[in-house]
Nucleic acid binder design. Structure first.
Length: 624
RNA sequence: GGCCGGGUAGCUCAGUGGUAGAGCAGCGCACUUUUAAUGCGCGGGCCGCGGGUUCGAUCCCCGCCCCGGUCACCA
């Protein structure tokens, strides 16, 4: 993710997150940090300069060692004390440590490893199953079993979440905590271990908050302290203890009991830099969520936004429904569908590209206000703004037209921003965006006319966009290629996309589209070549597409037929003729307006994310 | 699909035509309020995969795989 400054809204106990956020802030102020973009693939280096200095010193001292006498223990097989009591895996590791070095030259070890774990060709393993760290963790698990500790118990009687404890008592002073003697039982994943022999600290995280746990040998049953000695970074534990503050004022649980809850067998990413490799973050989102608190916060924000949309619409009498995703005729949008097949029926089926035609059937059925928030699938190119499956809100509103929709859309966006962000202004990249209503309204042909005039230095008339050959000539002068099948309207939209989209930073309704590119929209009253349709642009992204719905079945049939002839004329992407949809309209659909809002792009906007993959938990990746 | 950048230890990253490095993580020792704990010591690498050039390739060349960016296609 591009780093959402909005997302680090302070949780006092979230020490590591706060520190990382401090690093983020420091990145904006070069003096404190390395700032080099050279050795990172995801932006400038976040490490403090002292890191590099320390690295340099360590390097120097290593060189010194090389010149000195060899260490007396060099060449001996070490069997660490921790492994001595009983851990078979450790003995094996110790025993094979030396041979491994010798065999490295002849390749014997490599061959053996390759036979056991043949790596897929051309890929990189993110975890090595028999690495030292994994063996160590397995050994610790076995040792727990030997102690009679169930390594995967069935339940734990948690009294409070970490977040609940922090919010209930995290504001209390040391004196208040000592006087109150509050005992609690909580649980979470170990995110840090700081050990001092008899005094030890864990940082426990439950996904929403983090809390420190103080482990003292003489405060715990011997069994529990033995458990502690076998813990690894990432294990799940339950803790019972009294709340207090350490000398350094850190809010802490003084553990009197420790329960083992589950083992983390694989080493986790680093505590300080976290996980930045975007490929691993997307493919193994669970790792991202474990170590990057801002990832969790982003998806919580996304959830809040969706909830806000739902509540907004329900409060206005809209009924939430679910319509088919498997369709025998994909319609409602111009897009290439995913094709599949139903075995029992032996028919081809398509993943839907839009729910539109089904939702309007429901309007025909008398559901006057209806909406659906769900997935659409389009078998097309992927980009920072396109994932093959994406989430869309569509809603339909009887007796309203597209001007009503503009007002409702404004209200909806402001409400969502306030619910999700607590503000109606946001920062996207280097630009401040205000979501305050009313949004700017701009006729499509006016937007194109103005942009083209500016670009060419001569006045372009609206008439230049009405006739096919004049529009094509204009496109040619602008250096935009036009295919033979394109009519004036399609050319106008093409020019708009090339010249205007990027400039629409503040929320703007671009409205009144050519009829020919809007086969489901209703014409304006005074101009049959123009429809009552708008698209909402924010930060150069198309966020919404909406129109007064065409409900004249004869006109709808003509529009579908025009699509068919456009296809015959060579245009690849056209709407199919949906006979049942036309039949539904023949039963009568009340005047209505409908809108589609891309939820992923909206969340990108709200979280200052510049790739759609940042806001989708499991974006599509090429399978490995 | 074209072009550009990248793939080195579990993670974050340096580096070189001549036996591969750091920090964190791991292991050992010390340490009873730490917090990127600290100090000392020790392990850990098919340098994405395959071929070529070379006495010798992680490095140079060719092909492939995967990721990112960008353009094109595509709404």
């Amino acid at each position: 993710m591009g780093g959402g400054p909005r997302l680090d809204g302070g949780r006092p106990a979230d020490v590591l997150a706060a520190r990382r956020a401090a690093g983020e802030r420091a990145r904006a102020r070069p003096p404190g940090v390395c700032g080099s973009a050279r050795h990172g693939r995801g932006g400038p280096c976040r490490r403090p300069r002292s890191d590099h200095r320390r690295g340099g010193r360590a390097l120097a001292s290593r060189a010194d060692e090389r010149d000195g006498p060899p260490h007396p223990a060099a060449g001996r097989v070490r069997v660490p004390a921790r492994a001595r009591h009983a851990v078979a895996g450790r003995h094996q590791r110790g025993a094979r440590a030396r041979p491994h070095v010798q065999h490295r030259r002849c390749g014997a070890v490599h061959q053996r490893a390759a036979r056991r774990h043949p790596p897929p060709a051309g890929t990189r393993m993110t975890t090595t199953e028999d690495s030292d760290q994994v063996l160590q963790r397995r050994a610790n698990l076995e040792e727990l079993r030997r102690l009679g500790v169930a390594p995967y118990p069935n339940r734990f009687d948690r009294q409070a979440t970490v977040a609940e404890i922090v919010s209930a008592h995290g504001g209390k002073s040391a004196e208040e905590l000592d006087a109150a003697r509050i005992t609690t039982r909580t649980a979470g994943r170990i995110l840090a271990i700081r050990s001092f022999g008899k005094a030890n600290f864990l940082v426990l995280g439950d996904g929403q908050a983090r809390i420190q746990v103080y482990i003292r040998e003489d405060s715990l049953p011997a069994r529990d302290f033995r458990i502690f000695k076998l813990l690894d970074f990432g294990d799940w534990v339950g803790v019972e203890g009294r709340l207090f503050r350490t000398k350094t004022r850190e809010f802490t649980v003084w553990a009197s009991r420790l329960e083992f809850l589950a083992k983390c067998l694989l080493p986790l990413p680093e505590k300080w830099h976290g996980l930045t490799d975007v490929e691993i973050r997307f493919r193994q989102r669970y790792l991202d969520l474990i170590v990057n608190p801002e990832a969790r916060q982003l998806f919580e924000l996304r959830s809040r936004a969706v909830t806000a949309i739902r509540e907004f619409l329900v409060a206005r009498g809209f009924l939430e429904v679910e319509t088919p995703m498997l369709q025998s005729l994909p319609g409602g949008a111009l897009a290439r569908p995913f094709v599949t097949h139903h075995n029992a029926l032996d028919v081809p089926l398509y993943m839907r590209v839009a729910p539109e035609l089904y939702l309007k059937r429901l309007v025909v059925g008398g559901i006057e206000r209806v909406f659906e928030i769900n997935r659409n699938f389009r078998n097309e190119g992927m980009s920072a703004q396109h994932n093959p499956e994406f989430t869309m809100l569509e809603f339909y509103w009887s007796y309203a037209d597209y001007t009503d929709l503009m007002s409702l859309t404004e209200d909806l966006l402001v409400d969502v921003a306030r619910q999700a962000l607590g503000a109606d202004e946001l920062q996207y990249g280097d630009r401040a965006i205000s979501l305050k209503a009313p949004f700017r309204r701009l006729r499509l042909r006016e937007a194109v006319r103005a942009a083209a005039s500016r670009r060419l230095g001569v006045e372009v008339a609206e008439g230049d966009l009405r006739a096919r050959d004049r529009a094509a000539a204009l496109a040619a002068r602008l250096g935009i290629e036009v295919t033979p099948g394109m009519e004036a309207g399609a050319i106008t939209v093409d020019i708009f996309e090339r010249l205007c989209e990027d400039e629409l930073v503040q929320p703007t309704f671009v409205h009144d589209f050519p009829t020919e590119v809007s086969p489901l929209s209703k014409q304006t009253q005074d101009d049959p070549e123009t429809v009552e349709r708008f698209e909402l642009y924010v930060a150069g992204m198309e966020i919404a597409n909406a129109f007064s719905e065409l409900n004249d079945p004869a006109e709808q049939r003509r529009r579908f037929e025009a699509q068919l002839s456009a296809r015959a004329a060579g245009q690849e992407q056209t709407h199919a003729l949906d006979e049942d949809y036309v039949r539904a309209l023949e039963y009568g659909m009340p005047p209505a307006a409908g809108a589609g809002i891309g939820i992923d792009r909206l969340v990108m906007l709200l979280t200052n994310s510049h790739s759609i993959r940042d806001v989708i938990l499991f974006p599509l990746m090429r399978p490995r």
